[in-house]
Design a protein around this nucleic acid. Structure first.
Lengths: 134, 134
DNA sequence: GTCTATGCAAACGTTTTGCAGTGGG
DNA sequence: CCCACTGCAAAACGTTTGCATAGAC
């Protein structure tokens, strides 16, 4: 039987407040703002519980490792900025059911990651290049 | 300046012979068939060199960890069977350039992973279910 | 009071690094 | 003859586990 602990409540609150994919390190950092004693092992154990309960889902970031986000946000994908390393949620899904058809295979799910420059880093880069060319 | 060592030649040959995504453990195993003294650290260091040189690209496997494959195979994606854990190369790409447009962002690359059942495991599952229903 | 969940530390598998010595150019 | 590369061992990661104790019910 699952008990409601202050630690798990804090972890859930972190996800609700940040509203973006988080690493274990980030969960620990923000969570300690609420429960000072919060331990890494506790974070890992609660992530596992929340995954099993279907409250969280995990995404394997090609470069940043494992990240976690709330399932309540629905089907969507992510953009990773190669400069600032931030992960953005993307609205909608560019994949149509038809395009995923593969003879003989059963496609149950998919994961899509886009890479490039976010608006902020694009502007930064543009002004940097302007500066060096003078 | 990059030197041509027998170790790196062996590692490259392993990728050419196997022609599928490989783990570090597999590279080490096959590589030692050619260079008996081949060391883990050497494999990791050469993978890094080959990644920087653009000869390899890496993909994160949900269960098997990091895998590596030759870039020369061109742009393609992967299918992961949740039963047998095999990784299949998929021909083509279902994403059109247009569909990736995001206001303010610069999309430079993308990664797509499909999950589900491969043809073999689908058949296996079908016959299993037939068996239990009798 | 019971028993799950926690904090701590040690263990674990994977990847990286420091260093002395090898070998490619 | 250089110095990039190797092998080895130790260190550095991210994650899991064992254990005594705190705290939810």
């Amino acid at each position: 039987m699952k008990r409601n602990t202050t630690q798990r409540a804090a972890i859930e609150q972190v996800f609700c407040q940040q509203d973006r994919p988080l690493s274990v390190e980030e969960i620990l950092e923000y969570g300690r703002g609420m429960v000072e004693s919060l331990n890494q092992a506790t974070v890992y154990r609660n992530i596992k519980l929340l995954l099993e309960a279907g409250w969280l889902r995990q995404l394997r970031h090609p470069h940043l490792g494992m990240l976690y986000e709330r399932t309540s946000k629905g089907h969507h994908h992510h953009f990773h900025c190669r400069v600032c390393n931030r992960v953005y949620d993307l609205p909608g899904c560019p994949l149509k059911e038809r395009t995923l058809e593969l003879p003989g295979f059963v496609v149950e799910d998919h994961e899509l990651f886009l890479f490039g420059l976010c608006p902020e880093c694009r502007k930064q880069k543009a002004s940097d290049e302007l500066g060096t060319s003078i």
